[in-house]
Structure formats: C-alpha cells, structure tokens
Computed example of a mutant assay.
Amino acid sequence: MQDINLKITDRNGDLHEIVAPTDMSMNLMEVIRSYELADEGTIGVCGGMAMCASCQVYVGEGVEKLREMGDEEEAMLSEAFYVQDNSRLGCQIPISVEIDGLEVAIAPYP
C-alpha cells in the first residue's frame, strides 16, 4: 500500500493537505467526500458517473500527471457551470501514485 499527498482547496478557500490511499480504487471525488470537504449533497450527486459535474475541480500543480480527458468528461464539462480551462471532474481522476502532489480547488456548486 502506498499513500499519496494531495492539496485540496475547499469552496470556502481553505487549503487541506490530504493523505489518500492508492489501494482502495477511489477517485478524487470520493476522497473529497470521505474527508467531508464539501457540504453533503453538493459533490458526487450522480454517484461518480460523469453526469452532473458537481465534483468539478480546478487543477493547479500536477496537471501534467493526469490522464487525458475522456469523451464523457469533456461532454459533461461542455454543459457545466463555472468551467475553466483547467477544469476536470473529480470522479474521473483515479487515486494513483502518478498523481502524488496534485493540487486542486473544488469548483463552486450552482
């Protein structure tokens, strides 16, 4: 088992330095939920199916570590609110050793 370090800024602007396990098949949205960094019912509304964009994050440091965006993620972001050039869906970012050190900010919830 190997844990990774993530820096997540919540919707209030508070920075959280998180340790996340790589051996539980989690994604970033699930980590945010497990650490309760967003109000219940405002993140992962669709259950991580890339159908709601409630888990949208803005990627800062480490963007080059992410996999390329898939068609479903790109389609959902094309319809979402508050999208920026560095927007990604947290449910589409698997927790793996490759993203150690990633920095994200949780996007506003409509």
Rank of each mutant, 00 (worst) to 15 (best):
V31S: 02
L89R: 01
V45R: 03
D100C: 12
S25H: 10
L66H: 14
G13P: 00
M1A: 15
L66N: 12
Q56K: 09
V97M: 06
T22K: 02
A107L: 02
P21C: 11
D100L: 05
G62D: 13
G70S: 14
A80W: 02
C55R: 04
E68Y: 05
T22F: 07
I43P: 00
P110L: 12
V45S: 13
V57I: 15
N27Y: 09
K65I: 00
S96Y: 00
Y82L: 04
L77D: 10
A80S: 14
Q2V: 11
R67I: 00
R33D: 10
I32A: 12
F81C: 06
V57W: 03
I99N: 09
I95D: 03
Y82P: 00
D3C: 01
A105Q: 12
K7Q: 11
E72L: 12
P94Q: 10
I93Q: 01
E74C: 06
L6A: 09
A80G: 11
G48V: 08
D14E: 13
V97K: 08
E68Q: 14
P94A: 13
S96D: 06
L102Q: 03
S96L: 01
T42P: 00
E74I: 00
M26Q: 14
L77M: 11
Q92K: 00
C46A: 14
P108R: 10
M1H: 13
M29H: 07
S25A: 14
E64C: 09
D14Y: 09
I93V: 15
D14V: 14
F81Q: 06
S54V: 04
I8H: 08
E17K: 12
I8A: 13
D10V: 05
N5D: 09
I4A: 07
E30W: 01
A107Y: 01
D10I: 04
M24K: 15
E68F: 09
A75H: 05
F81Y: 13
V63F: 10
D85E: 14
C46K: 06
C55V: 12
G62T: 10
E36D: 15
G48Y: 06
E30T: 05
A80D: 01
S25C: 08
S34P: 00
E61K: 14
Q2E: 11
I95S: 11
T22E: 04
G62E: 04
A38R: 08
